[in-house]
Amino acid sequence: MTRFLAAKIGESLLAIWGVVTIVFFVSRVLGDPAVLLLPVGAGQQDIDSLRAALGLDRPILEQYFWSLLSMLKGDFGMSFQHQRPAMEVVLERMPATAMLAATALVFGTLIGATAGAVAALRRGTISEFIVMIAALLGQATPVFWLGIMLILVFSVDLGWFPTGGSGTWAHLVLPGLTLAVFVSASIARLLRSSLLDIMREDYVRTARAKGLMPRTVFFWHIARNALIPVVTMIGIIAGELLGGSVVIETVFAWPGVGRIIMQAIQNQDFPVIQAGVALVAAIFIVINLVVDLLYGVLDPRIRRR
Protein backbone atom coordinates (compact mmCIF):
# COMPACT_ATOMS: atom_id res chain seq x y z
CA MET A 1 0.00 0.00 0.00
CA THR A 2 2.91 2.36 0.80
CA ARG A 3 4.47 1.81 -2.64
CA PHE A 4 1.07 2.34 -4.30
CA LEU A 5 0.57 5.64 -2.41
CA ALA A 6 4.11 6.89 -3.10
CA ALA A 7 3.75 6.19 -6.84
CA LYS A 8 0.45 8.06 -7.03
CA ILE A 9 1.84 11.08 -5.13
CA GLY A 10 4.87 11.18 -7.43
CA GLU A 11 2.64 11.10 -10.51
CA SER A 12 0.51 13.88 -9.01
CA LEU A 13 3.49 16.19 -8.39
CA LEU A 14 4.79 15.58 -11.92
CA ALA A 15 1.37 16.40 -13.37
CA ILE A 16 1.16 19.67 -11.41
CA TRP A 17 4.61 20.70 -12.64
CA GLY A 18 3.58 19.93 -16.22
CA VAL A 19 0.41 22.00 -15.96
CA VAL A 20 2.22 24.97 -14.41
CA THR A 21 4.90 24.86 -17.13
CA ILE A 22 2.39 24.72 -19.99
CA VAL A 23 0.32 27.57 -18.53
CA PHE A 24 3.41 29.74 -18.07
CA PHE A 25 4.49 29.53 -21.71
CA VAL A 26 0.98 29.65 -23.18
CA SER A 27 0.06 32.74 -21.14
CA ARG A 28 3.08 34.58 -22.56
CA VAL A 29 1.62 34.48 -26.07
CA LEU A 30 -1.63 36.18 -25.02
CA GLY A 31 -0.13 39.63 -25.46
CA ASP A 32 1.59 42.37 -23.53
CA PRO A 33 -0.20 43.23 -20.25
CA ALA A 34 1.71 46.52 -20.00
CA VAL A 35 -0.28 47.84 -22.97
CA LEU A 36 -3.57 47.05 -21.21
CA LEU A 37 -2.53 48.47 -17.85
CA LEU A 38 -1.44 51.84 -19.22
CA PRO A 39 -3.85 54.51 -20.51
CA VAL A 40 -4.62 54.63 -24.20
CA GLY A 41 -1.94 56.57 -26.04
CA ALA A 42 0.88 55.82 -23.60
CA GLY A 43 4.33 56.17 -25.10
CA GLN A 44 6.76 53.36 -25.77
CA GLN A 45 9.02 54.59 -22.97
CA ASP A 46 6.19 54.23 -20.45
CA ILE A 47 5.40 50.73 -21.77
CA ASP A 48 9.06 49.67 -21.51
CA SER A 49 9.31 51.05 -17.96
CA LEU A 50 6.22 49.14 -16.84
CA ARG A 51 7.43 45.93 -18.50
CA ALA A 52 10.71 46.27 -16.62
CA ALA A 53 8.87 46.88 -13.34
CA LEU A 54 6.78 43.75 -13.92
CA GLY A 55 9.83 41.69 -14.85
CA LEU A 56 8.54 41.06 -18.37
CA ASP A 57 11.67 42.42 -20.05
CA ARG A 58 13.83 39.49 -18.97
CA PRO A 59 14.42 36.43 -21.22
CA ILE A 60 11.52 33.99 -21.17
CA LEU A 61 13.55 31.12 -19.70
CA GLU A 62 14.84 33.36 -16.92
CA GLN A 63 11.26 34.41 -16.14
CA TYR A 64 10.25 30.75 -16.05
CA PHE A 65 13.11 29.76 -13.75
CA TRP A 66 12.44 32.47 -11.16
CA SER A 67 8.68 32.01 -11.46
CA LEU A 68 9.07 28.28 -10.78
CA LEU A 69 11.25 28.92 -7.72
CA SER A 70 8.67 31.40 -6.38
CA MET A 71 5.82 28.95 -7.01
CA LEU A 72 7.63 26.27 -4.99
CA LYS A 73 7.50 28.74 -2.07
CA GLY A 74 3.80 29.39 -2.68
CA ASP A 75 4.44 32.83 -4.16
CA PHE A 76 2.74 33.39 -7.53
CA GLY A 77 3.56 37.09 -7.63
CA MET A 78 1.41 40.20 -7.49
CA SER A 79 -1.68 40.52 -9.62
CA PHE A 80 -1.14 43.13 -12.34
CA GLN A 81 -4.76 44.24 -12.12
CA HIS A 82 -5.60 43.90 -8.42
CA GLN A 83 -2.17 44.79 -6.99
CA ARG A 84 -2.46 41.99 -4.44
CA PRO A 85 -0.88 38.54 -4.18
CA ALA A 86 -2.28 36.49 -7.07
CA MET A 87 -3.05 33.40 -4.98
CA GLU A 88 -4.93 35.55 -2.48
CA VAL A 89 -7.10 36.90 -5.32
CA VAL A 90 -7.89 33.35 -6.44
CA LEU A 91 -8.40 31.85 -2.97
CA GLU A 92 -10.96 34.45 -1.97
CA ARG A 93 -13.15 33.16 -4.82
CA MET A 94 -12.74 29.51 -3.78
CA PRO A 95 -15.55 29.40 -1.16
CA ALA A 96 -18.13 30.47 -3.75
CA THR A 97 -16.95 27.83 -6.22
CA ALA A 98 -16.79 25.15 -3.49
CA MET A 99 -20.37 25.95 -2.41
CA LEU A 100 -21.67 25.74 -5.96
CA ALA A 101 -19.71 22.55 -6.69
CA ALA A 102 -20.81 20.82 -3.48
CA THR A 103 -24.47 21.66 -4.11
CA ALA A 104 -24.38 20.36 -7.68
CA LEU A 105 -22.36 17.26 -6.79
CA VAL A 106 -24.46 16.19 -3.79
CA PHE A 107 -27.83 16.60 -5.44
CA GLY A 108 -26.60 15.38 -8.82
CA THR A 109 -25.08 12.23 -7.28
CA LEU A 110 -28.15 11.42 -5.20
CA ILE A 111 -30.54 11.89 -8.10
CA GLY A 112 -28.26 10.16 -10.62
CA ALA A 113 -27.50 7.16 -8.40
CA THR A 114 -31.18 6.67 -7.61
CA ALA A 115 -32.22 7.00 -11.24
CA GLY A 116 -29.45 4.67 -12.45
CA ALA A 117 -30.34 1.99 -9.90
CA VAL A 118 -34.03 2.21 -10.82
CA ALA A 119 -33.24 1.91 -14.53
CA ALA A 120 -31.04 -1.16 -13.95
CA LEU A 121 -33.40 -2.95 -11.54
CA ARG A 122 -36.47 -2.22 -13.69
CA ARG A 123 -34.92 -3.01 -17.04
CA GLY A 124 -37.39 -3.20 -19.90
CA THR A 125 -40.08 -1.18 -18.11
CA ILE A 126 -41.43 2.33 -18.62
CA SER A 127 -39.33 3.46 -15.63
CA GLU A 128 -36.09 2.60 -17.43
CA PHE A 129 -37.31 4.30 -20.61
CA ILE A 130 -38.14 7.54 -18.76
CA VAL A 131 -34.83 7.56 -16.87
CA MET A 132 -32.76 6.95 -20.01
CA ILE A 133 -34.59 9.62 -22.03
CA ALA A 134 -34.16 12.13 -19.20
CA ALA A 135 -30.47 11.23 -18.82
CA LEU A 136 -29.85 11.52 -22.55
CA LEU A 137 -31.50 14.95 -22.66
CA GLY A 138 -29.57 16.03 -19.55
CA GLN A 139 -26.23 15.17 -21.14
CA ALA A 140 -27.11 16.54 -24.59
CA THR A 141 -28.43 19.90 -23.42
CA PRO A 142 -25.75 22.65 -23.36
CA VAL A 143 -25.41 23.94 -19.80
CA PHE A 144 -25.31 27.58 -20.88
CA TRP A 145 -28.62 27.18 -22.77
CA LEU A 146 -30.22 25.40 -19.81
CA GLY A 147 -29.00 28.12 -17.47
CA ILE A 148 -30.46 30.86 -19.66
CA MET A 149 -33.79 29.01 -19.94
CA LEU A 150 -33.96 28.61 -16.15
CA ILE A 151 -33.31 32.33 -15.74
CA LEU A 152 -36.04 33.21 -18.24
CA VAL A 153 -38.61 30.93 -16.58
CA PHE A 154 -37.87 31.12 -12.86
CA SER A 155 -36.31 34.60 -12.64
CA VAL A 156 -37.81 36.73 -15.39
CA ASP A 157 -41.30 35.18 -15.77
CA LEU A 158 -42.02 33.80 -12.27
CA GLY A 159 -39.67 36.00 -10.24
CA TRP A 160 -38.85 33.19 -7.81
CA PHE A 161 -35.06 33.48 -7.88
CA PRO A 162 -32.46 36.18 -8.65
CA THR A 163 -31.06 36.31 -12.16
CA GLY A 164 -27.48 36.18 -10.91
CA GLY A 165 -24.97 37.13 -8.24
CA SER A 166 -24.46 35.55 -4.83
CA GLY A 167 -25.14 36.17 -1.16
CA THR A 168 -28.20 34.08 -0.27
CA TRP A 169 -29.41 30.50 -0.79
CA ALA A 170 -31.77 31.78 -3.49
CA HIS A 171 -28.79 32.84 -5.63
CA LEU A 172 -27.46 29.26 -5.41
CA VAL A 173 -30.58 27.43 -6.61
CA LEU A 174 -30.49 28.04 -10.36
CA PRO A 175 -26.73 27.61 -11.01
CA GLY A 176 -26.67 24.58 -8.69
CA LEU A 177 -29.67 23.04 -10.46
CA THR A 178 -28.13 23.67 -13.89
CA LEU A 179 -24.94 21.80 -12.98
CA ALA A 180 -26.82 19.08 -11.05
CA VAL A 181 -28.79 18.17 -14.19
CA PHE A 182 -25.60 17.31 -16.09
CA VAL A 183 -24.05 15.53 -13.08
CA SER A 184 -27.11 13.37 -12.45
CA ALA A 185 -27.49 12.46 -16.13
CA SER A 186 -23.86 11.32 -16.39
CA ILE A 187 -23.99 9.25 -13.21
CA ALA A 188 -27.37 7.67 -14.03
CA ARG A 189 -26.25 6.35 -17.41
CA LEU A 190 -22.92 5.06 -16.14
CA LEU A 191 -24.35 3.40 -13.03
CA ARG A 192 -27.10 1.67 -15.00
CA SER A 193 -24.57 0.26 -17.47
CA SER A 194 -22.20 -0.81 -14.69
CA LEU A 195 -24.96 -2.51 -12.68
CA LEU A 196 -26.21 -4.43 -15.70
CA ASP A 197 -22.69 -5.65 -16.50
CA ILE A 198 -22.11 -6.85 -12.92
CA MET A 199 -25.49 -8.59 -12.78
CA ARG A 200 -24.37 -10.88 -15.62
CA GLU A 201 -21.26 -12.07 -13.77
CA ASP A 202 -21.00 -15.70 -12.68
CA TYR A 203 -20.38 -14.87 -9.03
CA VAL A 204 -23.69 -12.97 -8.87
CA ARG A 205 -25.57 -15.97 -10.23
CA THR A 206 -23.73 -18.17 -7.72
CA ALA A 207 -24.69 -15.87 -4.85
CA ARG A 208 -28.34 -16.03 -5.88
CA ALA A 209 -28.18 -19.81 -6.27
CA LYS A 210 -26.84 -20.07 -2.70
CA GLY A 211 -30.12 -18.54 -1.52
CA LEU A 212 -28.79 -15.18 -0.34
CA MET A 213 -31.37 -12.45 0.17
CA PRO A 214 -31.81 -10.19 -2.89
CA ARG A 215 -30.84 -7.15 -0.80
CA THR A 216 -27.59 -8.82 0.30
CA VAL A 217 -26.74 -9.82 -3.27
CA PHE A 218 -27.38 -6.31 -4.56
CA PHE A 219 -25.51 -4.29 -1.93
CA TRP A 220 -22.62 -6.69 -1.21
CA HIS A 221 -21.96 -8.36 -4.56
CA ILE A 222 -23.38 -6.01 -7.21
CA ALA A 223 -23.37 -2.40 -6.00
CA ARG A 224 -19.90 -2.51 -4.48
CA ASN A 225 -18.26 -3.64 -7.72
CA ALA A 226 -20.43 -1.43 -9.90
CA LEU A 227 -19.29 1.65 -7.95
CA ILE A 228 -15.70 1.60 -9.23
CA PRO A 229 -16.37 3.35 -12.60
CA VAL A 230 -18.94 5.59 -10.89
CA VAL A 231 -16.36 6.72 -8.32
CA THR A 232 -14.07 7.62 -11.23
CA MET A 233 -16.83 9.66 -12.84
CA ILE A 234 -17.64 11.47 -9.58
CA GLY A 235 -13.95 12.29 -9.07
CA ILE A 236 -13.62 13.74 -12.56
CA ILE A 237 -16.83 15.76 -12.21
CA ALA A 238 -15.82 17.03 -8.75
CA GLY A 239 -12.49 18.21 -10.12
CA GLU A 240 -14.19 20.01 -12.98
CA LEU A 241 -16.72 21.67 -10.68
CA LEU A 242 -14.14 22.77 -8.11
CA GLY A 243 -11.94 23.97 -10.92
CA GLY A 244 -14.63 26.47 -11.71
CA SER A 245 -17.57 25.96 -14.02
CA VAL A 246 -16.60 28.90 -16.19
CA VAL A 247 -19.73 28.96 -18.36
CA ILE A 248 -22.19 28.72 -15.46
CA GLU A 249 -20.28 31.23 -13.35
CA THR A 250 -20.40 33.63 -16.29
CA VAL A 251 -24.09 33.07 -17.07
CA PHE A 252 -25.16 33.56 -13.45
CA ALA A 253 -22.48 36.17 -12.58
CA TRP A 254 -21.29 33.80 -9.86
CA PRO A 255 -18.05 35.12 -8.27
CA GLY A 256 -16.06 31.90 -8.47
CA VAL A 257 -12.60 30.71 -9.50
CA GLY A 258 -13.56 30.03 -13.11
CA ARG A 259 -14.82 33.56 -13.58
CA ILE A 260 -11.73 35.21 -12.09
CA ILE A 261 -9.48 33.09 -14.34
CA MET A 262 -11.46 34.15 -17.42
CA GLN A 263 -11.18 37.80 -16.36
CA ALA A 264 -7.44 37.35 -15.84
CA ILE A 265 -7.06 35.89 -19.35
CA GLN A 266 -8.95 38.84 -20.83
CA ASN A 267 -6.75 41.29 -18.88
CA GLN A 268 -3.53 39.28 -19.46
CA ASP A 269 -2.96 39.11 -15.71
CA PHE A 270 -0.28 36.38 -15.82
CA PRO A 271 0.15 35.84 -12.05
CA VAL A 272 -3.59 35.29 -11.51
CA ILE A 273 -3.78 32.95 -14.51
CA GLN A 274 -0.89 30.87 -13.16
CA ALA A 275 -2.21 30.85 -9.59
CA GLY A 276 -5.73 29.96 -10.69
CA VAL A 277 -4.75 27.17 -13.05
CA ALA A 278 -2.21 25.77 -10.55
CA LEU A 279 -4.90 25.67 -7.85
CA VAL A 280 -7.41 24.07 -10.20
CA ALA A 281 -4.85 21.47 -11.31
CA ALA A 282 -3.87 20.71 -7.71
CA ILE A 283 -7.50 20.22 -6.68
CA PHE A 284 -8.24 18.03 -9.69
CA ILE A 285 -5.14 15.89 -9.13
CA VAL A 286 -5.74 15.53 -5.38
CA ILE A 287 -9.33 14.42 -6.02
CA ASN A 288 -8.12 11.84 -8.53
CA LEU A 289 -5.52 10.67 -6.01
CA VAL A 290 -8.29 10.14 -3.47
CA VAL A 291 -10.27 8.25 -6.13
CA ASP A 292 -7.28 5.98 -6.79
CA LEU A 293 -7.02 5.26 -3.07
CA LEU A 294 -10.73 4.50 -2.91
CA TYR A 295 -10.15 1.91 -5.64
CA GLY A 296 -7.94 0.08 -3.18
CA VAL A 297 -10.76 0.07 -0.65
CA LEU A 298 -13.41 -1.10 -3.12
CA ASP A 299 -11.14 -3.66 -4.77
CA PRO A 300 -8.10 -4.79 -2.70
CA ARG A 301 -6.58 -6.43 -5.79
CA ILE A 302 -5.69 -2.99 -7.14
CA ARG A 303 -3.31 -2.33 -4.23
CA ARG A 304 -1.21 -5.34 -5.21
CA ARG A 305 -0.62 -4.25 -8.80
Rank of each mutant, 00 (worst) to 15 (best):
T2C: 09
R3N: 12
A7Y: 07
I9A: 09
G10V: 09
G18A: 07
V29I: 15
P33D: 10
A34D: 08
V35F: 07
L38I: 12
P39G: 12
A42V: 09
G43D: 12
I47K: 01
D48G: 04
E62G: 06
S67W: 02
L72A: 13
A86E: 10
E88Q: 09
T97Y: 06
M99N: 12
M99E: 13
A101Y: 03
L105F: 03
V106L: 12
L110Q: 10
A113K: 00
A115F: 05
G116Q: 05
V118N: 13
V118R: 14
R122P: 14
E128W: 06
A135V: 01
A135W: 00
L136D: 09
G138R: 01
F144L: 14
V153D: 09
D157H: 10
D157N: 11
L158W: 15
H171V: 05
F182A: 15
F182C: 11
I187Q: 01
L191S: 00
R192I: 11
M199H: 03
R205S: 09
A209R: 02
P214R: 11
W220V: 11
R224W: 04
G239R: 03
E240A: 11
E240F: 11
V246A: 11
E249M: 06
T250E: 10
A275K: 01
A281W: 05
V290R: 10
V291H: 11
V291T: 11
L293N: 03
L293V: 03
V297M: 15
I302S: 03
